[in-house]
Simulated scan of single mutants.
Amino acid sequence: MLYRRIKLFCIFLLFATHFQIGWSKILLGWLEYIEFPELGIVAKAKMDTGTFLSSLHSIDKEYFQKNGEKWVRFILEIENQRAKKKHKKTHLIVERPIERFTSVISSNGISNRRPVVLMTICLGNQLYQEQFTLNDRSHMIYPILIGRKSIEHMGLIDVSHIYTMQQPQCNSKNNIN
């Protein structure tokens, strides 16, 4: 009996050590609040393991040159969760340099070419610089998708929960991950 208890205790220690080392990532729900600190907007984002790149709802894209680089100007139409009146969309004109273009096959099977831009986001108390494709998502429920490329260094997804993180609380002292 004592031998069996010692054996179970050793197995427990092995698992505890494994999970402590192997599970250093945070646990995220399938929906989380993220902030775009440069824009002062907090929004709902769907953690989408079915898509590789993150996607951001944008309308009225305009391409232009700035200092010899390709840029895009777009309207970010999003429900700001910090606004006093919920369910009212904020419209912001945003300009970003284009990192590249990528072809994306949407859920309906249609392929289209989208610009990719870098955006700084805050999740919990961590800042991340992430790549987003720009696309009109007005017909979708969630205007922001966080894809696998971003999720892999943010944490693990628990699909049975939403909003596991605190409201975004980043400041200029936070380092970008």
Rank of each mutant, 00 (worst) to 15 (best):
K7G: 03
T164V: 09
I41Y: 03
F36Q: 00
K25C: 14
Y128N: 03
S54Q: 03
I6Y: 07
I59S: 11
I162H: 14
V116D: 06
K66T: 01
T102S: 14
H18V: 14
G155T: 06
A16T: 12
K44G: 04
K85F: 12
T51V: 14
R4G: 00
Q166F: 07
Q81A: 13
Q20H: 14
M119L: 12
V104P: 03
I98C: 07
F19T: 14
N171T: 04
L145I: 09
M165G: 00
L56F: 10
K61Q: 14
G40R: 05
L123K: 06
I11Q: 10
Y33D: 10
V116G: 04
Q20M: 14
Q65W: 10
M119N: 05
E69H: 14
L31V: 11
R114T: 00
W71K: 00
S54K: 00
I26M: 15
L27M: 15
I151G: 09
K85A: 15
L8P: 01
T164Y: 08
G29W: 13
P168A: 04
N171C: 01
Y33P: 01
S55M: 04
L76K: 01
N80F: 05
A43G: 01
S172K: 08
E32T: 10
A45E: 01
F9M: 07
T102G: 06
G109H: 06
H57T: 07
E79T: 11
E35T: 08
G29L: 08
S111G: 07
T102P: 09
V72R: 12
N135D: 13
T51W: 02
C10W: 11
S103I: 11
M140K: 05
E32D: 08
K149T: 12
S54P: 02
Y142K: 03
M154Q: 13
D60Y: 12
I21Q: 13
F132P: 02
S55P: 08
C170H: 07
G147D: 08
N177S: 14
H87V: 06
K7W: 07
W23L: 15
T51C: 11
I78D: 01
Y63N: 05
L145W: 07
Q126F: 11
Q65F: 06
F74K: 00
I41W: 02
R148E: 09
F64R: 04
L27E: 15
Y128S: 05
T49S: 11
V94F: 03
L127H: 01
Y163M: 10
F12D: 02
